[in-house]
Design a binder for these strands. Structure first.
Lengths: 266, 266
DNA sequence: GAAAACAATATCGTATACACTTTATGCCAG
DNA sequence: CTGGCATAAAGTGTATACGATATTGTTTTC
């Protein structure tokens, strides 16, 4: 039998993933060697392990390194993070609660694949949330906060000319999340965070032929309107901005040949 | 030492709680007696046990039988539901993800107590979500759906005259959740469901001197506007309706004597 | 040679075991 | 009688074990 295990190389996938864990904390916890005296179990109070796993997968999804449909087998995650399945499952369940992974009974976890229908619903929700956020953000606006937004724009601009890994999340997501935080409403911010991560999956899945330059310019215009305190204008532009993003998404049409890769992932 | 364990009688609390499980499924799974031959473990495919636990606690919170601050010790839940801590913890973690319980490290789970600050944020979010839902619900409105709304109103009306246990959730919550469902956007509906459960905690915590009759009349008026297809009017009334509810909430003022019970609960 | 039945493997679901932390109890000093 | 310390009990955190299920590879039969 030919060793054709590379057609679904989910093993490779974790190599870059691990690189994004906050620091080299993973290496500190080596695997116990069989037959060896069990080491004194010392709970490192640093960051609970399940949070590390959650963050790693979350970031990998936002960075579009983990793509929809990819498998997340528990044993592999256990080895990578040096913990038992208990904690891996805990993290996976939280991720499932945030619609980032899909937990199929008895068949393991995969990165979620939002359906076209879901996509539409997510964008409707996002427009509603961001429309609610904008007036609050403007009301709470201070020179210091405007400066923060401009700083985010600058980082965005740099990322534009330097198309490294730091992809969608870094490029556009940060701006929106920052705005949500400035609105000072953690409930709305949490909703938006969830929607942003799902949007990241959508963008990965449906290959937005993104005009990043245009997107960036809209962000700049938004900051101007916010600084000017133009609630109506800023809210309208945000809505248009989101509509434009949605319009760029190529949802699979009935006449297109179904993408086998996606189907395999699903 | 006097046996003063009744000051926090969380044991009693579960007795009515169990009464609300979908059916007597709990009784089917008896406790294994120590020393006995382990019975053949048969996974009952009915409903996964953790969902049962989740639902029971969720419903109990919505019914205001479980009040903020109440302890939810794992061993007790294990016995009540006849499962191991694994499943209990799974349910508790999901509940924590939905902000219904608070998981304090090493100190167990308690029913969440939204702070005044959180309360304000939740209401802002709720107004935004329901404002987004209303046009969609009206757009999708059909005679059959209007009839469903009217049916909900009728149930609400009956509950008004028959003040049994079926409290806030049944009284007002159903109407809003039904409307969200009719909007046909599951994302927004999920957000609203979360907000409704948190509102239930808020209402329990801050003792709304609710004018249920008035609330009910506003619902009736809303259905009329929806049936008439008056998007502007319905959205405006909904907003006013929510503002009125929020205005009725008695957030603790600085000049009031702090409620010892609440503080103990936190 | 192709399809179906079977066996083997990998992986998931749940229970249980043990370590650690917190909370309660009891004792003694003041 | 009160306050603080030592000990005991209860409860949580994580790992591991084992049964159950899904998937894959192999064999058998037509």
């Amino acid at each position: 039998m030919a060793p054709c295990m590379s057609y679904f190389p989910y093993i490779d996938l974790f190599v870059p993933l691990v690189g994004f864990i906050s620091d080299s904390a993973i290496m500190k916890r080596r695997q116990p060697i069989a037959g060896e005296i069990k080491p004194v179990r010392r709970r490192d109070a640093s960051v609970s392990a399940d949070a590390r796993i959650y963050d790693a997968i979350f970031q990998a999804v936002m960075m579009q390194r983990l793509k929809p449909g990819m498998k997340l087998p528990e044993p592999q995650l256990c080895e990578l993070f040096g913990v038992s399945r208990t904690l891996v499952r805990k993290a996976l369940q939280r991720l499932a609660g945030d619609y980032i992974v899909d937990l199929r009974p008895n068949r393991g976890a995969i990165v979620a694949s939002p359906t076209p229908e879901e996509t539409r619903e997510i964008f409707v929700a996002r427009r509603a949330i961001e429309a609610a956020i904008m007036p609050l953000a403007i009301a709470n606006s201070t020179p210091a906060r405007i400066a923060l937004l401009k700083k985010a724009l600058k980082a965005e601009h740099e990322a534009l000319h330097n198309p490294t890994q730091l992809d969608w999340a870094q490029r556009a997501g940060n701006f929106h999340v920052l705005l949500a935080e400035q609105a000072g409403n953690r409930v709305l911010a949490a909703f938006l965070t969830q929607l942003m991560s799902r949007c990241s999956l959508i963008v990965t899945l449906y290959e937005v032929p993104g005009d990043s330059v245009c997107e960036h310019e809209e962000h700049e215009q938004l900051v101007k309107l916010i600084a000017a305190g133009d609630v109506k204008g800023a809210t309208a532009l945000m809505d248009a901005h989101l509509c434009a993003l949605e319009a760029r998404i190529r949802l699979p049409k009935a006449d297109e040949a179904p993408d086998l890769g996606l189907l395999l992932g699903l």
